[in-house]
């Protein structure tokens, strides 16, 4: 078990920098999810920690050691790849035993560990099969098995579930969570899926364009997103953003409506989560309904802010019956207002 410390990590390919100084500490036994859109540098960051990419600048510490110059093999890590990267010519047993054999463990010990992992992952009956004789979910388990038999200090996952179908993904997500808690191994998990990130992570590192936008618990990231990007990326359906102005204790919307809250003056972007708007006849936020989506548990109302062409989505509990073209009023509790500086996109309340 070990802490991981990233210190101002940078990575350039040729002349282009793709990671611009990533810092953060990962506690012993913690599962940190690195989440962000495709191409933001998640895999690059993970592969630098694994030792598969060189570090352009900055430092990586695993436990007490600075590992920048260490080969992957000497970092005491295990990694699960997106395509599983199983050895196609070896059986499941051989796949899992490969790393142990190289470390020269006695045969009985190898068998014991492999079988123990196979039991945990319900792979007992597949030990003598080749990877191509397994389903996607089973291959995924083998990849996990190969990681856990090594009993490493750190697990690294690079989008391990993205090749599975939706149902299996939910199931494996829970299993990974349980397994990680049970083994207590410090883990870093990369995904572009914000639901996966929210459900799995002890903490989330939200990455965008090579910058860390926010590093915090799922609740912090959801309740107090520090930038417009994080606010829009985390949460589904996505947060509504409205250009607004602050003026004596109110947020003034594009149509002149005044929502109580905020302090100071200036141009801001107001963020409102669709699920935090409350239906209210006299509410200041008035939405002209264009389309309804009935999801059973809740109803999504798509429309525009009355008097503007700013699109909005509102999510209400239960089944509602609202005519298209109708104007509905909503109020927004003060603690549901997310105010961002219009220019920098940073949170100001």
């Amino acid at each position: 078990m070990a802490k991981i410390r990233l210190d101002n990590l940078r990575k350039s390919y040729g002349g282009t920098e793709v990671l611009h100084g990533v810092s953060g500490e990962i506690e012993d036994g913690e599962l940190v999810v690195i989440v962000g859109p495709s191409g933001c540098g998640k895999s690059t960051l993970l592969r630098m920690i694994a030792g598969l990419e060189t570090v352009t600048a900055g430092e990586i510490h695993i436990g007490e050691r600075m590992v920048n110059g260490l080969e992957p093999a000497r970092r005491d890590i295990a990694m699960v790849f997106q395509n599983y990267a199983l050895y196609p010519h070896m059986t499941v047993r051989q796949n899992m035993a490969y790393g142990l054999k190289i470390r020269g463990l006695p045969k009985e010990e190898i068998n014991r560990r492999v079988e123990e992992a196979a039991d945990i992952l319900e792979l007992r009956e597949y030990l003598e099969r080749k990877p191509r004789q397994l389903s996607g979910g089973q291959r995924q388990r083998v990849a996990m098995g190969r990681a856990i038999v090594r009993d490493p200090q750190v697990f690294l996952f690079d989008e391990p579930l993205s090749n599975l179908d939706a149902k299996l993904r939910v199931q494996m997500r829970l299993e990974i969570r349980k397994l990680q808690k049970r083994l207590g191994v410090t883990s870093i998990y990369v995904t572009h899926d914000q639901v996966e990130a929210m459900t799995l992570g002890d903490r989330l590192m939200v990455l965008n364009g090579g910058y860390v936008e926010q590093f915090g618990t799922p609740i912090e990231v959801y309740e107090r997103p520090q930038t417009v990007f994080v606010a829009g990326f985390i949460g589904s359906p996505a947060m509504n953003f409205l250009p607004a102005e602050l003026s004596d204790g109110h947020v003034v919307l594009g149509n002149g409506a005044r929502v109580p809250g905020g302090a100071g003056e200036g141009e801001v972007t107001l963020g409102l989560r669709p699920e935090h708007l409350v239906a209210d006849e006299d509410g200041p936020v008035r939405v002209r309904v264009a389309l309804m989506e009935q999801l059973g548990a809740n109803t999504l109302i798509h429309g525009v802010l009355e008097g503007t062409d700013q699109e909005m989505v509102v999510s209400l509990h239960g089944i509602r019956d609202i005519a298209e073209g109708e104007v509905m009023g909503f109020s927004a509790p003060q603690d549901a207002l997310h105010l961002f500086d219009r220019r920098s996109g940073r949170r100001i309340n």
């Binding site: 992957p72 890590i77 295990a78 997106q82 050895y87």
Partner: peptide, 26 residues
């Protein structure tokens, strides 16, 4: 696939061992 070789590297196999146990059979 690159990742298969990388997995072997993480598993602790040096270049020569990777060659004989992974690349050559494949």
């Amino acid at each position: 696939p690159r990742s298969v070789i990388e997995a072997a590297a993480i598993d602790g196999a040096g270049p020569i061992r990777r060659f004989w146990t992974i690349i050559f059979p494949l």
